[in-house]
């Protein structure tokens, strides 16, 4: 599944990044690499973008961009 499919309050682990060029660079800069844990926090009133908790920071991504990040769902217990 991809990151944009994660529901509010759900947790996930990054498996792969399918973005290219600048978008890929941006993701890497933010520390979004395989095995990074993410939590889906909230969506904007128009349902897009969505805010995620990634490596101690709240980062907003457009759903279109988030769809380029492949993840697997994770239990809350494995978050910390």
């Amino acid at each position: 599944m991809s990151l944009n499919e994660l529901q509010l309050g759900e947790y996930g682990v990054v498996k792969a990044i399918h973005a290219t060029d600048k978008v890929r660079r941006r993701f890497l800069d933010l520390g979004i690499v395989p095995n990074t844990k993410v939590k889906c926090l909230y969506r904007s009133p128009f349902k897009d973008p969505t805010a995620y908790f990634i490596r101690g920071t709240t980062i907003a991504l457009r759903n279109e961009d988030a769809s380029l990040i492949e993840i697997t769902r994770m239990e809350e217990s494995s978050w910390a």
Partner: peptide, 11 residues
């Protein structure tokens, strides 16, 4: 195309 939108929401 619109470029990527990455926005940090600071505390």
């Amino acid at each position: 195309y619109p470029s990527s939108f990455v926005l940090e929401l600071p505390p």
